[in-house]
């Protein structure tokens, strides 16, 4: 791998004949492969060291199980038989994952539906900025964990409480970034649209909104990350299902192997959802990526 990828990077210093024989697609594929290879180096190293450091199945006097035991716990959690037996986690992985993902999805959607219009309003209109912005700035420093008692008191031990916390957490970065985007719309674009006869609403919809999209996507990515934090916190306390619930429950009964498998699941899910957003961003913001015909 390393010798062939060396050649890819050397196309600037004289090995053009080697490089030009490759099509752009295979070049991109090689580059992708190299990126992936680089990405797994560190996690692999950590896992290997962890495995060897913890000979006998655990580290720190039996507290931390080694990767092979975590993997085994994960396998049973994911594919084991459900229902009876001594292992209450067996076969419940997917169901819990979906509980959490669904809550994040719902909460995130609420945050977008409220956050984007409010952000546009703040960025675009001075009166709405004056009315909304101070309150938002006041609420923003309150951490999501501080809302937990409030959420449980108001919504009880129910899904809606978790969804409330997730939307609240995702709302702030979405609103702030959207507002920033709407504020920074190039003045001449707005003038051009007014000159061509656009009314206020048309300017908002056809100029301010698309021009703000790059910032909005930044907000969405941050917001989704906070959404995952919020769902775990909420499930640990305020509902009785999902990855956060399993995490806390497994800790209580001393199943650290499940705890770590759960943590890894959360990490992978967060990564996956971020990649999905980035892919959507790539489609939607196609106009920012294309290269000039001229250069």
């Amino acid at each position: 791998m390393s010798s062939s990828s060396e050649r890819v990077s050397s196309d600037t210093d004289g090995k053009r004949d080697t490089v030009s024989s490759w099509t752009g697609a295979s070049l991109a594929a090689r580059r992708g492969l190299r990126t992936a290879a680089l990405a797994v180096v560190l996690p692999l190293a950590v896992i290997i060291i962890w495995q060897y450091a913890g000979r006998g199945g655990s580290l720190f006097g039996g507290v931390l199980p080694t990767p092979d035991r975590v993997w085994e716990a994960w396998r049973i959690w994911a594919f084991g038989p459900t229902g009876l037996g001594l292992n209450p986690y067996s076969g419940t992985w997917l169901a819990n994952l979906l509980f959490s993902a669904e809550r994040v999805g719902k909460g995130f959607l609420c945050a977008i539906v409220v956050g984007v219009p409010v952000g546009i309003a703040i960025g675009w209109n001075r009166i709405s900025a004056g009315t909304l912005d101070p309150t938002i700035q006041l609420l923003r420093p309150i951490p999501i964990t501080a809302w937990l008692p409030f959420s449980i008191a108001v919504f009880g031990i129910q899904d809606i409480g978790a969804i409330f916390l997730i939307s609240l957490g995702a709302f702030f970065p979405i609103v702030l970034n959207t507002a920033q985007g709407a504020r920074d719309v190039e003045r001449n674009l707005i003038r051009a649209s007014l000159m061509m006869g656009a009314g206020r609403w048309t300017v908002l919809r056809r100029v301010v909104l698309p021009a703000s999209l790059p910032s909005i996507f930044t907000g969405l990515r941050i917001g989704l990350g906070i959404g995952w934090t919020a769902v775990i916190v909420a499930e640990m306390v305020a509902v009785k299902s999902g990855l956060g619930y399993v995490l806390w429950d497994a800790y209580y009964v001393g199943r650290m192997d499940v705890v770590i498998a759960d943590m890894a699941t959360i990490g992978l899910l967060g990564l996956l959802s971020d990649m999905i957003i980035m892919q959507i961003e790539r489609w939607v913001l196609n106009w920012r990526r294309l290269q000039s015909y001229q250069s």
């Binding site: 001449n188 674009l189 649209s193 000159m195 698309p210 106009w287």
Partner: peptide
Amino acid sequence: PGPDRGVVFQEAALFPW
């Protein structure tokens, strides 16, 4: 502003999307 007076801007000010 209005379409009866068409403005051509220095940097074109086209909608990039």
